[in-house]
Design a protein around this nucleic acid. Sequence first.
DNA 1: CGACTGATTATTGTCAACAGTTGACAATAA
DNA 2: TTATTGTCAACTGTTGACAATAATCAGTCG
Lengths: 228, 228
Amino acid sequence: MPQAAQTALQLVQSNSLPALVQVEIEQLILRGELAIGQRINESELAVRFGTSRGPIREALRALEESRLVRSEKNRGVFVREISVAEADEIYDVREVLDQLIGQRVAERVTPERLRSLDAVLTEMDQATDRQDVKSYHSLNLKFHDMLVDFAGNARLTESYRLLTRGLLLFRLRGLQDGGGFAVSNTEHRAVVRAVAQRDTVRAGQLLRQHAAKSRARMHKAAARRSQE
Amino acid sequence: MPQAAQTALQLVQSNSLPALVQVEIEQLILRGELAIGQRINESELAVRFGTSRGPIREALRALEESRLVRSEKNRGVFVREISVAEADEIYDVREVLDQLIGQRVAERVTPERLRSLDAVLTEMDQATDRQDVKSYHSLNLKFHDMLVDFAGNARLTESYRLLTRGLLLFRLRGLQDGGGFAVSNTEHRAVVRAVAQRDTVRAGQLLRQHAAKSRARMHKAAARRSQE
DNA sequence: CGACTGATTATTGTCAACAGTTGACAATAA
DNA sequence: TTATTGTCAACTGTTGACAATAATCAGTCG
């Protein structure tokens, strides 16, 4: 049996319909197919996914708990919007988590992990050369995902992902990263270098600074946006 | 119109049934009425709350997202159990969040806030004198809740609460805090002292250390438990 | 006596229908 | 003309019923 079919089977066997629907809606939001602030029509989604409204509602309740949507009674659920102030709050927390991540990754680094980090960085440089914003962004996500995974703390991963998903909403408003790709990737390289040297303190500091600078870039983009 | 009736009206108008049910089940779990690892019967809860199973299921899906329960397909949802290893992971994250909280509280402290913190500490001392474990614990929760609120960052509050709720499950297994009440409260006082002096760095350090020591107490309790 | 097989029962998964609420628009009156 | 009330369609909130699955137990066979 093909690998893909097997995993698909496992997926449908272990995850129930609401769970499947949940990730599907998540994708819809994160890909921007459901716009920020837009109301989500339950029946519409139901026919789209070929289910009844029950599973849709359960999925939406889960997404509400993970702060991707908000719900107003008798009015419906809306794709959550995020303000600069909220993004700032997220960055406050993200900075300390990133510091912890940097430390832990440096403690637990292996040659193989180092190679995969390097590989992503190389791809990001290539994307920068091509001015390929989209690829760069998804590689950037992948890079940070790998880092938090390599930190080896499931709860940390969970907290971090939950937090940064809020920032993804922000990006959909076109307000993230004022274009500093090349800059951002040199910061990445510095982090990986410290990790390679197993300099835990420095790796933590650098990753924290990277988050801080990324926040600054966001502010810059927001300011530019608002004055236009 | 009486104040109580008005708020009750607002409650039922703004919060839907699933939301109400959710906090209700939460209480059931946190009070230990639903034991760790126990399966939760949907129909049973439905008759208990006088609703149908729909709202119950939606509430459970939300609780699953906040990691208070886990769900197995076609078998039901279970009150989540937590291992020492998982608790350790939580403490890893909690320590850095507590440090951030300490800093922020010290930055934003007001005389009034200081008074309310002091009041809780006094109550905790009284509970210690009475050997009133239960009161001490709920006051302890209140104290830390106040701190994170005073930090003035909603996302931080959210992350912190989500995280520490996992530890509450742990306590239900009787594995938290190896009895060091008096010790714990002197640590609290030291934190508040630093906050009163607006010594942001020290407040952060002390609160972080408090978390670390609290983790150590947990380990001690767990070790004692396992050798019996 | 224990392991296996099949029926039985309890429980979850899903659905379709009904009830209640909201927002928009038309009708009415000041 | 403007404000208010009445009406309606769309949608959400909730329910009860049915289907599918897993656990339980009785009976049979080795």
